[in-house]
Amino acid sequence: MDAFEILFTASFWVAAIRIASPLIFATMGELICERAGVLNLGIEGIMTAGAFAGWFTVYAGGDLWTGVLVAALAGAMFGLLHATLTVPLSLSQHVVGIGVTLLATSLTYFTYRLVLPEVTSPPKIEPFQPLPIPGLSQIPLFGEALFSQTPLTYLAFVTVAVVAWVLYRTPVGLAVRAAGENPSAVEAQGISVTGIRMGAVMVGSALMAVGGAFLTMSAFNSFFFEMINGRGWICIALVVFGSWRPGKALLGAILFAAFDAYQVRLQQLSGGIVPYQVFLMMPYALSILALILVARRATYPKALMIPYQKGER
């Protein structure tokens, strides 16, 4: 099999969509935060917390969907912390975001050690199983890639549609977009900017946590340290790549995941002549290139990262 043929194998696309799923959740989460005007750099830590919370719920006897819910709640709580500091208290979104990432990550590892003190190899759970959709999954290549995934992957795609609908078709989405563009427009129409922004950050953070939980509950079946491995930061770039639009961000996530799945297969093909690190590097190098090409003309939300104080202008 040569490097080109890989692109036409179903297993490659199945893997790409699977790798994309956690990115899709977390990218939608970050997109909601940023659309409301808040950069959420807590994403990496919130994903870690979500990965642990979901997995541990199932390990402790909860069912899988309860695990997803607990992960989302854990994310929303860290979102509440982030939002409280950045929205009503107007602290630097950069500093708070990095703080939340460090706090959430460390707290997660600490909790892990606290509840599983004697464990040397991470315990496993029974994760979400693939649920092929009858008929659709029989379509060669793309049908198989899209419709023989786990329920959480389907949920990721549904999330994109819901986020797009809410942002562009509903009154609350209008308020979120206006809060990120010109918060005084929101206040002048009698809506609380603080309420909208805090709500957006909490919902966005919940999605990030579900993205993290996908890793422990669908892609893999256990929790280990460093497993988020920079995925959160990639999602920040994906939001820019997608020009703050859900559909384009989804494309970006799939593109990145495809690069990632591709480099793994190239590693196997190269037979060890090229150091494997070169392949590992590839998706990131290509992401930077894509950002340069696509995102230069991106129009970002004008009030992004600007704290809003009532009555001030």
Binding site: L174, R177, A178, E181, N182, S184, A185, I191, P301, R313
Partner: peptide, 26 residues
């Protein structure tokens, strides 16, 4: 200083906050 969101349409700016936030559709 106008309180308008530049990235939205005239209609969206005017309708902002005039319909219940939790309606499923503007």
């Amino acid at each position: 200083h106008f309180t308008l969101a530049d990235n939205m349409t005239v209609l969206e700016n005017i309708a902002l906050g005039t319909q219940s936030l939790w309606l499923p559709r503007l």
